Simulated scan of single mutants.
Amino acid sequence: MDLFMETKDWAKALQPLINKYEKEKHPLEYGSLYQVLVMVLLAAQDSDAHINKLAPAFFKDFPDMKALAKANTEQLMQHLSGVRFHDNKIAWLQDIASVVKDDKNIPTTMKELVALKGIGRKSANVILREAGATAEGIMVDLHVVRVAPRLGIVSEKKDATKIEKQMMELLPKQMWGEIGMAISHLGREICRPTNPKHSICPVSKDCEYCHANNGPC
């Protein structure tokens, strides 16, 4: 890892992000742990906005894990046919429902969550955060993959697993649960792919990209 990354006090540099976005709700409009599990699985390689639109009708028919466990493929397809990679996702939901069976059995540890079909580390980190469970990693979505290298906190620019690992090495555990979502919100609102809003960015003075591009840092 770059010496600059290792020697910079990133916990201090990124604290303004935590202050701005701490406890900010995930863009998925869920109402329970069951719903967030289903929705993060469906949103993978799709959009949060799309999943938010179809969720009310889906959860009206399948309000909990017990109902989902009784659903057949045809019933699920009626709601999810427009979701990207719906065949795989329907199979994963059916497998999860057959394993978990009841909302009270939804796991809240990284090991148990990633053991479920269709749930990777990114989804597990989201579920843990929204469940109020102890963070075991840092959520790295597409926004974090883009923004974290811009900030200069990581040298990896594409691999989410490597980005997460580098961030975990540099940041204290007490920041893990919030920093991924904070960077994601920054990427959605301020640090856009083109024309990032340096003048209102809370971490611009510590941002490698801002300084390299002569922004108002």
Rank of each mutant, 00 (worst) to 15 (best):
A44F: 06
H185M: 10
K157R: 15
K25H: 12
N105A: 07
V140G: 10
L186E: 01
K12Q: 14
M77Y: 15
K173N: 11
D102H: 15
M175I: 10
D87G: 11
V203Y: 03
H26C: 14
K12M: 10
M168W: 05
N72P: 02
V40N: 04
D64K: 09
L54Y: 03
A115E: 09
G118N: 05
R129G: 05
Q78H: 14
I183T: 08
V140E: 04
A91R: 15
Q45Y: 10
L14D: 03
R129T: 05
K158N: 13
V126F: 06
S123Y: 00
K20T: 14
C191S: 05
Y34H: 10
C191W: 04
N214W: 01
R150Q: 12
C207S: 02
A11D: 10
I190S: 03
K122C: 06
P202H: 08
R146W: 07
L37I: 05
G137E: 04
I190D: 07
A212M: 10
P196E: 06
D2M: 07
H86P: 00
A182H: 08
N105Q: 12
D103C: 01
Q94C: 05
G187F: 00
H211R: 15
G187W: 01
K66T: 14
L93M: 13
G132A: 12
C217Q: 11
V154D: 00
I163A: 03
V145G: 02
P56N: 11
K70N: 05
Q166K: 06
P172V: 08
P193L: 04
G187M: 09
I18D: 01
F58S: 05
N195F: 09
G177Q: 09
W176H: 12
E169L: 12
D141S: 08
I138E: 03
L186I: 05
H185V: 13
M175Q: 09
G137N: 06
A91P: 03
L171A: 08
M39I: 08
R146P: 08
